[in-house]
Each structure stands twice: as C-alpha cells, then as structure tokens.
Write a protein that binds this DNA or RNA. Structure first.
Lengths: 253, 253
DNA sequence: CGGAATCCGGATGGATACTG
DNA sequence: CAGTATCCATCCGGATTCCG
C-alpha cells in the first residue's frame, strides 16, 4: 500500500482498478483490520482483540496506511479517546470482504476447523459483539455461562452478561446467578457459529447442551446469532441470501 | 499464504473465513496473477506480460503457492509446454476480484490516470485479448494502427492484426496495409478503455481520431470492447450491470 | 524462447520491551 | 489505554544464470 512517505517502488504501476485495490488490500493483515472496523470496533484495543496475533506496532502502521488511503478516519471520541472509523469509501469495502468470506466458506471449509485456527477468545469476542441483545428474556439481567472442552484449562469458561443496553464478556466468574449453561467443545461451537451445523443437530448428538429454565434455554436461539459470514447468516425469515450490506446495517443499527 | 514447506508462523490463526481467504489473497501481486488467469492467460510468459514489473522468480513462487492452495493447476499443453489453469475454486474468485475492481472504479478513479500507472504496453496487451475478433469487417485480414502521444518515442506505435481466428499485437510495423489509424494520447485511450469517457465524447473534442474507409472506421466500435472492469463493460444491449461472471464466460467462449 | 533457480541488498513484518 | 522503539527474521526486487 502506498504510504505517505514512501518511494515509488511499491505500487504496481498499473492503471487497472484491480491493481489499485490490490495496492491497499493485498497487504498482510489489512483485510482483517477492515473486517474488524466493519464489524463495529473502533478503539485501538478493541481492534486488537479481533487480530490478537498482530503486533500493536503493525496495527498502528496499518491504521495510518488506511487513513492515508481514505478508508479510515481517526478522531477523538468521548473523553478524548482516539477512535478509528470507516469513511464512506471504507464502508463500501463490505462487498469485497463479503465475497472473500463467501469464497472461503465454499472452498476452504476444512481449514477453518484446523486446530491452529481455533481460538476460544476470538470466538467468544466475535459472539459477544454479534449477540442480539434485544432478544433475551424480559428486561432483567441475563447471564449465560459457556463451558468449553478441547481448550487449555484457563480458556474453558466464559460468561456473557446481558444488561439493558449492552453485553459484557467475562473471563472470570462475575458472581451473578447464571441463567443458562452452554456446554460444548470449542470445535462444535465454532462449527455452529460458522453455520456448518445447526444447533438442533449438535444437540441431538449431545455435542452441545443447554441447561437452565425453559424460557432461558429457549432464549438462546433468539440471541445467539450466527456469524455474519455464515452461509445463511441470521436473516429475517424468508430470506436466505448470505450476509449483505443490509444485514450489516441491521445489526449495527 | 501457506506454502508447502513453511512453518506455522505465517497463517493468521483464525477460523474466520475472511482470514483464510486473506491468507491467500493478501500477498503481494497475488490478486493480479489471478486476474491474469481469469482473463485467459495460461502460459508463464503471457502471464508475465500482464504483470511486467513482477520478477519472474516471484511469479514462479506465486504460481506454486496457488497450486498448493488448490487455485491453479499446472499441466502440459501442446508440444509439452507448461500451462497454468484455474481450478473450479480459482474460477470462483472472479466475484472477489470483480468487487475489488468495482470498488476502485468508484473510489480510486483519479489514481488510475496518474502518470506512473499509465503503461502503453499493458494497455495494448489488455486491449488485444479483449478485442472482439468476430466483430471486424468481412472475413479478410484487418489491420488497425495505433499512434499514441504522451509516451516515449519507442512506445508510440502498435498494430493490431486481425486474422481469421486470432488477433496479433505488433510493436513493429508488420508491413500490411493499414485499414484503420487510431490517433490519440495514452491518457485518453486509457480513459476510454476504463469507461470513464465515451468514444463519441473524445472524438468530438478531437482527443481521438479514427482514419480509414467508412466501414473500417465504423467497425472500430464493434471490435473495441471496453475493459471487462469498466463500469458498464461491453454488455449486450439492454443490460447495464457491471462485469459479471456471465460476461467473462461470454468473452472467453 | 519459455520457464525457471540463485544471489544479494533493501524493505517489511514479528517479538519484545518500553513509555506517557 | 494507546501506542513507540528496537532488533532480527523473512520477504521482495533486480540482475544474472541456467536448462531444454
């Protein structure tokens, strides 16, 4: 990608639109940073939770590159904290990223479940921000506890705490009474999240268990959205297209 | 991109489909190599003409990477020459590349015409393979001579020689009688090719001139297709979508 | 001529430590 | 919390060479 102070040796020297898009998008990590921004993260540390293996110096560099390319704006938010937001040009990268995901869902399905690619922190972080927090029972607090097998012992437990207006992800017992226990393996939860298997199917095989009061169990299917890039995503009844810009807007709003 | 003999440090360690697609596509030059393959080049040297600033060793490396990723197949063609062909998975990257091009056409339009990105060899090579060779007058040989301004003196002249069944691009006068002279600047021809201006508009401004017998001039609009990634491409009358996989198939077939 | 491999210097990315 | 600074490994660009 062309940086502010770089020589001319880095561009591809082609008028072709694909070449110009490639100058920006075909840099290591860049599409993933854009994915995080599209998913609604805008603080440096939140962005980094979505790309945990990227060094902070490189993330800072990429955010500068994206500003220079007119894709990201850096501005001060509440209490003077820096925030990174997509520009209109940046938001219109959604279809590009979407097609990349759709292609991989079709042709690289097996690689998604390879052990080095499974990551409970990342999965839970992804679930937390995609959870439909207006779809839980009543107006009260609602706590869901995940117990994962197939992971290191310090990564087995996660709590989602639904409060009116927001959802918190905890790595330690927050001490609240738990309304729903979700017991499964990291692999199965990832498969469900990606839309490769249905909740019903894995429950029938006892690969996923839900324990709690009847209505708290029933609520799970309401608030547990699939990945935005799952083959059919979670779309209004009757629609079966994959993730679209509309779907994004619906969730972001 | 994961290479056959590489360590595990290079992947992103994410189950996300976008991350897996990124492992392949976010490597320097890779989307351009795929573009060339999608446009129908399959010999090493033909591919290299589409990415002239890429070193041959890196092109060879990328072709190996793409084979390993299941996107490219290497096989022997006529007279034992090696050919590189997209697999079904590779052909389905068309929508990804298409969205990248469409995004750049909307947001990076000005950069396409910056001097370092203009390249007459590349433009003419692109035109040659996109020319509609069944749309020229009669069954006879037809020769179009381009005279470009705004380029080094050794890049001013190109000849397209239409013979039954194929079209040759010449960098030196092939000696045939010329049926049509096209006189314009590199910048204007690039703009027309990208669909940023119409042939009519630039002819009205005398920025492009066609000289020849009436029917040979008229033929120009038939055989001179726009870039497959021009905003409206050259599509059958009545359709105005941008480049689609259908359009690709139509031209390739 | 097509299709590479090899070598080298410079650019980029990863790991870790550090700072306001 | 939000990044820099530094050092080293790897990658890339360019030139050259090689082989059928």
């Amino acid at each position: 990608m062309l940086r502010s102070g770089m020589s001319e040796t880095r561009g591809y020297g082609q008028f072709c639109p694909i070449a110009l898009a490639t100058e920006i998008l075909a840099e290591r990590w860049t599409p993933l940073v854009i994915r995080e921004l599209l998913m609604g993260s805008f603080r440096f540390n939140d962005l980094q939770r979505g790309v945990p293996r990227m060094s902070s110096s490189l993330l800072a560099q990429r955010l500068r590159d994206l500003q220079f390319a007119g894709i990201v704006e850096r501005r001060r938010g509440e209490r003077g904290v820096w925030e990174y937001h997509l520009t209109p040009a940046g938001r219109e990268l959604f279809p590009v990223v979407e097609k990349m995901g759709a292609w991989a869902q079709r042709w690289l399905r097996h690689k998604m479940l390879e052990t080095p690619n499974l990551d409970p922190d990342l999965l839970m972080w992804d679930i937390r921000r995609t959870v439909l927090d207006d779809a839980r029972p009543g107006g009260r607090r609602y706590v869901a506890a995940f117990h994962l097998s197939g992971v290191p012992s310090n990564r087995q437990r996660y709590w989602l705490v639904f409060e009116p207006g927001h959802v918190d992800l905890c790595y330690k017992d927050p001490g609240f009474e738990v309304d729903l226990f979700i017991t499964t393996s990291l692999r199965v939860l990832t498969q469900v999240w990606l839309g490769h298997v249905s909740v019903d199917a894995v429950m029938r095989e006892d690969a996923l268990r839900l324990d709690g009061a009847r209505r708290d169990v029933a609520a799970f299917r309401k608030w547990f959205a699939l990945s935005l890039f799952a083959p059919a995503g979670r779309l209004p009844a009757g629609r079966m297209e994959p993730a679209s810009e509309d779907a994004l807007a619906r969730r972001a709003g």
